[in-house]
Design a protein around this nucleic acid. Structure first.
Lengths: 267, 267
DNA sequence: CGGAGTTTTGATTAGCGTCAAACACTGTGG
DNA sequence: CCACAGTGTTTGACGCTAATCAAAACTCCG
């Protein structure tokens, strides 16, 4: 968790005085989406390619239908039951979806990487069913829910893009269920590393089997249903057997086939 | 697993000679959908209320766009990677979605009750990502995928109904992840019982806290990520403390608040 | 320098898995 | 009719994985 962010956007935001001022809108003249590299991974490409008047979106709402914002590491972007009316997309940085039980136990449902849709079902679901927390400093944008809903009914391409994401997400949910239900600690952690590497590779963020990995062991524990202590032991054993190297929020897979033998992605 | 089925449809199908003849189409003069009681729970109501020509469905395809079939208990309805081109709905009987790992381990993803959509994302997903197995004898129907996909683009009500099911399913997937990731064996099993009771209640299939429960302990084990032996012990302890009574595929909750204290549904 | 959070390591324990055997139930074939 | 196999449930003994408890080393940051 050093100062480098993935897309070269530095973490050193202007220091904010109070902790209450959570979200900072960036009303930049030029939309940051123009330079976004992860647009093809989600629905932004489809949404932004043509904001034509014939779609029935008035000029007035157009200026407001997409809002950009930032948030500091470790702060919540969304909380269970919230009704913000916006579908969020993570432009830059890492975050995770999680559920918090009354007694403090937490389960991480999804690690969110740059380009991921934060609240995919928000188009139809008023209340979201989980909370979202930033891992690093993040930059995200929110589309107006009503506008998207209307567009889903008229724009076949958008419907296709959205449902494609639903399918990908469902598939990953199933994988996590299999992990939690019937795999050992070694397998779960190896799987998490391999899956994250794969997703980062799709974003061009893996060089020489090395990639940014800002997940603390507590986060890995909550994502895999283990304790931080046990995660530490497993990672230590992976390092001892020369499967991985890690430091300073970076991770390198030094023995890919060895790691795959433990946590292969084939379901 | 006695001879009675939930909707009064008897299990005694005409005896079939070979085991190979898996599926039996029911080309009845009157559609069984007319008497279906679970239609309001899924997309059938919307789909069947008006099959009007103006939707662009030709008379020829209309006769074929919905097919009814049956399957025996313990047989697979679908297998991973299959490409049948139909979206299935469970009309009667119980089934489950599962993933099978190469080494034989299995994880049940969803228990399917009468009225549930078997392959919800099949509209967009050519290959399904899991297998489906019948628990009891089942009766199901399959809608033509291409027809549904076309209709999703033109029929707002259908889109709404479908996406509503996607949300409900996502929510249940998240609940299972929390169960598997951070709850004890007692909690998981109590939760499974309570959730199943709730879903049966929506279908009017619970009387006096008593309901059909044809899940073997092996199935409960695969659904909760436990072993059959341990499930047996937990259920025995539930019975010993007078939380539940069970026999012959039926289950009665004799101490609801006690069971809720263990496996409450609130997430 | 001090405090908070993270990682590491060790010792101990508990929950659940594994192995095994007995029993009940069902359907099958002789 | 019985013998038998196959499957599911129950129970016991034992073992192992991972949790728990605890404490020290390390990092980051004011």
């Amino acid at each position: 968790m050093n100062g480098l962010s993935i897309h070269g956007i530095e973490r050193r935001n202007p220091a904010r005085p109070g902790g209450q001022q959570l979200k900072e809108h960036c009303n930049e003249a030029v939309s940051p989406c123009a330079a976004c590299r992860v647009r093809p991974l989600n629905i932004c490409n489809v949404l932004l390619k043509q904001v034509s008047p014939k779609k029935g979106i008035s000029k007035a709402s157009e200026s407001d239908w997409q809002l950009h914002a930032r948030e500091q590491a470790r702060r919540n972007l969304k909380s269970t039951g919230e009704r913000s009316g916006r579908l969020g997309i993570l432009c830059d940085g890492w975050a995770f979806r999680f559920v918090q039980l009354p007694d403090g136990r937490r389960q991480i449902l999804t690690i969110l990487l740059p380009g991921d849709v934060i609240t995919l079902t928000r188009i139809f679901d008023e209340k979201i069913q989980f909370s979202v927390q930033a891992i690093t400093n993040v930059h995200f944008c929110g589309y107006d829910r009503a506008t998207l809903k209307a567009r889903l009914n008229t724009d076949d391409e958008f419907l296709g893009a959205w449902s494609n994401l639903v399918i990908i997400e469902t598939r990953r949910n199933f994988e996590l269920m299999v992990d939690l239900g019937c795999r050992s600690a070694d397998e779960r952690i190896a799987h998490l590393i391999l899956e994250t590497k794969l997703r980062l590779k799709q974003r061009g963020l893996v060089v020489d089997s090395t990639f940014k990995f800002p997940l603390s062991q507590k986060i890995i524990a909550e994502a895999t249903g283990l304790t931080p202590e046990h995660v530490s032991r497993v990672l230590a054993s992976f390092r001892r057997t020369n499967l991985i190297e890690s430091n300073e929020g970076w991770l390198k897979i030094t023995n890919l086939s060895g790691l795959q033998r433990i946590g292969d992605l084939s379901v």
